[in-house]
Design a protein around this nucleic acid. Structure first.
Lengths: 157, 157
DNA sequence: CCCCTCTTGTTGACGCATCAAGTTCGAGCG
DNA sequence: CGCTCGAACTTGATGCGTCAACAAGAGGGG
């Protein structure tokens, strides 16, 4: 409690923050709802399958997959369990390498990604990309990187 | 299924989209975790209390509150129930006005917001605002507005 | 007047995320 | 060798969000 009174947000900062809320809150909700409706899978499930689909052998270590999808290992494990039950991927321990596990996309899983991809891209365009000009795209890139860095910078506390 | 092959994302669009994922996924998670740790409440709960605290009489209709927090009425109702159980707000039907209900912040609720606010602002600065220059702030504002508009534009489907 | 329907909320079931434990394996080291 | 440590998952309990169903006024025709 040695903190002094905080620097409150100034008007333009506040406006930016409020605008950001739309991106942070409404966008994921909208994308999720649409994926669910059109492809019967979660936005996050799509991410997992999609990342796998672009990997050589369509295979990836659970840890790496978690990193790539910005998820906790626990979350990924639960999701992988469900996807495995649905026959969209398989898991296999990598022998002689500690507790490492590889996830591999099945044919059925690949087919699902391929089927879902167009709708996904369309949604991303419709809700975000197509409304932005080249400068906005660049800015978004910078902002995203900054956020990523800032979060990584404060792992514990 | 009359769709032709979709316009895939071009490199700079893809980069922007990936960067956006950090904002959409990691940022809310980070803010949520921190609010939980430092103030024992959800990010969303904070929003609700905070919005109420700035209202005259610290009172607002449930519907309006839902709109302001970008939540479904159902979600808000659940949360309001919990907050009410914790003594942070009260609900009361508005007599003679259909089924309208007003939510009002209690003293205890107000005290919680006040206590949580500095940490909240600090987090918002640390994870987002303080890393951005004036142009980025403006861009963020434009992008947020665009997203909001795009989502409103596609209510059904 | 009575029914119809619209608005506004609430509720319950279900699914997913999170958090804290537990499990299993490899490695380092004494 | 045997022990402990840490890395890499998995699992189970708990809590929140969503979706669909319901409830309860208020108009508004007919």
């Amino acid at each position: 409690m040695t903190k002094s009174t905080p620097r409150w947000l100034e008007p333009d900062e506040l406006a930016a923050w409020l605008a950001n809320s739309a991106i942070m809150i409404s966008l994921p909700a909208a994308l999720d709802a649409r994926m669910q409706r059109e492809s019967g899978m979660t936005f996050f499930e799509y991410m997992v399958l999609s990342v796998l689909s672009e990997e050589p052998e369509r295979t990836m270590r659970m840890s790496d997959l978690a990193g790539r999808t910005a998820a906790s290992l626990s979350r990924l494990s639960h999701v992988a369990g469900r996807l495995e039950a649905r026959g969209l991927l398989t898991r296999a321990r990598v022998p002689g390498s500690g507790r490492r596990t590889n996830a591999t996309l099945t044919e059925a899983g690949y087919a699902e990604v391929v089927a879902a991809a167009p709708g996904h891209v369309a949604a991303v365009r419709e809700y975000l990309i197509d409304d932005l000009d080249r400068d906005d795209l660049k800015a978004l890139r910078r902002i995203g990187s900054a956020v990523e860095a800032a979060i990584k910078r404060s792992p514990a506390l």
